[in-house]
Amino acid sequence: MKRFSQWVLVTSVPKVRRRSRVTPPWWFTLPALLLFAFVVLVPSARGVYYAFTDWDGLDPELAFVGLRNFTDMLNDGDALQAVWHTLLIAVAITVIQNGIGLLLALGVNSTIKTRNFLRVLLFAPAVVTPIVTAYLWRNLLGPDGAVNAVLGPWGRDWLGDPDLALWMVVLVVVWQFAGYSMVIFLAGLQSIPREIYEAAAIDGTGPVRRFWSIVRPLLAPAITINLMLSIIGGIKLFDQVYALTGGGPGHATDTISTLIYKDAFTLGEFGYSIALAVVLTVIVAIVSAGQFAVLSRNERAAS
């Protein structure tokens, strides 16, 4: 965390000190690049090839089918629905998780006595494996679970109702990772020099104005990191969905990732499944590149 707050400091106040350094020769990166190519790039590229075949994961004879897997996707209601669910989940998680994370960070950054205890408590869920959290919530949200026991007559079939199940997935992810966003925001908040607050207080600003004109711009790097992490995490969400609902009822909570898994390992349609994975990769790449471009422009404007 310490390293991170230093980084935030350096990027947010770039003009303070800039060391002049000799640029190291590019071939210093060669060993790392070769390893990366061998472990990631080459296998991925070879994997992409299968997206254009009808491979079933077993038969050594496979036929090249061109773009058929991709055109099939356009006619596959389940796949289109899964893309929609994925985007919905990603946006909902990004907005809610970071909203709550920011409020929590502002709270535990204040001078309340129990702040250290609260920081640990709020971050604790992020330490647990997502699959464990999901099974826990699956029991809590069951028809006879603790949630319904507390709610009594207002209890619902949270995971069995197709209109609610998707939001329960979002709830579980936000519950687990709001503390994670909080920690990153907190690091950003602590890098804001106290003098700026004092100067603003002397100028007579209220808390809202202080947040909007000082905290928000100086927090820009932390916001960038948090939005990137949560939107990418949301788009490729798998564990929580699979453990909570298995994509059901029906296909009501299927995401691209759960479909990839089902198509490959339950149905043996590896070619189609890999084509879906390629689409997922493209979506992640476009969204994160776009988001990064917008946010880093804001960051520059803010600093």
Binding site: L141, G142, P143, W158, L159, G160, D161
Partner: peptide, 12 residues
């Protein structure tokens, strides 16, 4: 069947 079968797991 009991209520809410869709929220009930095999285990439950």
């Amino acid at each position: 069947f009991q209520e809410n079968p869709l929220g009930t797991s095999y285990e439950a």
